[in-house]
Amino acid sequence: MKFYQRLAFFLFGLLLGVIFLIYFLGAKAESRGVTFCYLPNCRVLKDIRSKPFYYSENATKVMQEKWVDTTDIRNTLTYGDVDFSKSNVKVGAGKLYIVEGKTTDQTPILLEVINYDKKVVLQGISKYKVE
């Protein structure tokens, strides 16, 4: 058997194996609620969501203005984008992360989150203009 025939059989078998794994393992992961986070944005947001969440006094005052609520914050921490150029700054024993997201009425917001070892504190909430 020539090399290109062996290569074609190998690639065909590899393709079938990959499709099999994606189909069966993907369905198993979805049924159990397992997510695979390999990118930095996903890993940071998952780490933030996995810890107890607290609000600072400043964040509580902004939330009392009623233009942002806990649903908006939760959605931003699930689907938002971490601005790594301004994030990963040491603040005491934790690190500051800036997360960009939107409210339910599509107002762009910035969350300043301090990620400690055992907890997460929402430091500030602000509106920003999309460039």
Rank of each mutant, 00 (worst) to 15 (best):
M1L: 12
M1W: 11
F3C: 05
Q5L: 13
L7N: 07
L7A: 12
A8Q: 12
F9T: 13
F10T: 12
L11V: 10
L11Q: 12
G13A: 14
G13I: 13
L15M: 12
I19A: 12
F20A: 14
Y23H: 11
Y23L: 12
Y23T: 12
L25D: 15
K28L: 15
A29H: 12
E30W: 13
R32H: 15
F36L: 15
F36Y: 15
P40S: 04
D47R: 10
D47A: 11
S50M: 03
K51Y: 05
F53H: 07
F53Y: 08
Y54H: 06
S56M: 04
E57C: 05
V62L: 00
V62R: 06
M63G: 09
M63C: 07
Q64D: 11
Q64R: 15
Q64A: 13
Q64Y: 13
W67V: 05
T70D: 06
L77M: 07
T78R: 13
G80H: 07
D81L: 14
V82Y: 00
V82Q: 05
S85F: 03
S85I: 04
K86F: 09
N88K: 07
V91H: 09
G94P: 00
G94E: 06
K95R: 14
I98A: 01
I98E: 00
T103Y: 04
T104D: 11
T107N: 09
T107R: 11
T107P: 01
I109F: 04
E112Y: 01
I114G: 08
N115K: 14
D117W: 11
K119L: 11
K119G: 02
V120D: 08
V121P: 04
G124A: 13
Y128P: 09
K129H: 13
